[in-house]
């Protein structure tokens, strides 16, 4: 395997690790908090919101936005580390 190939492989591996972590959070805030465990979380009241309902109609969306910007930051750093930035 050439240098170039092993560099590409390392880059891809780290990328997949980020994807796995970010998508796990994506799944937790929407499918877990907003749907599967919604009834349990609804027992907790934050201001006028039941927590499960809040995640389904507000919270999950805020987290989605943050997730993409975190991904942008992580990947820009990764691009620099491997010399792929331009």
């Amino acid at each position: 395997m050439t240098d170039k190939q092993s560099k590409a492989k390392g880059y891809w591996k780290e990328n997949l690790k980020y994807l796995f972590i970010l998508l796990a959070i994506w799944f937790m805030v929407s499918y877990c908090a907003g749907i599967l465990f919604k009834d349990a979380l609804d027992a907790i009241q934050v201001g006028g919101f039941k927590l499960g309902f809040w995640f389904a109609q507000q919270g999950s969306i805020y987290v989605f936005v943050i997730l993409i910007f975190v991904y942008v930051k992580l990947m820009n750093k990764l691009d620099k580390k491997y010399g792929y930035d331009e």
Binding site: L19, L23, W26, S30, Q57, S60, I61, F64, I68
Partner: peptide, 14 residues
């Protein structure tokens, strides 16, 4: 709400 926003996470990452 979740369906039409969460898709953008998939779009951006995948």
């Amino acid at each position: 709400l979740m369906g039409w926003t969460g898709g953008y996470v998939l779009l951006a990452l995948l």
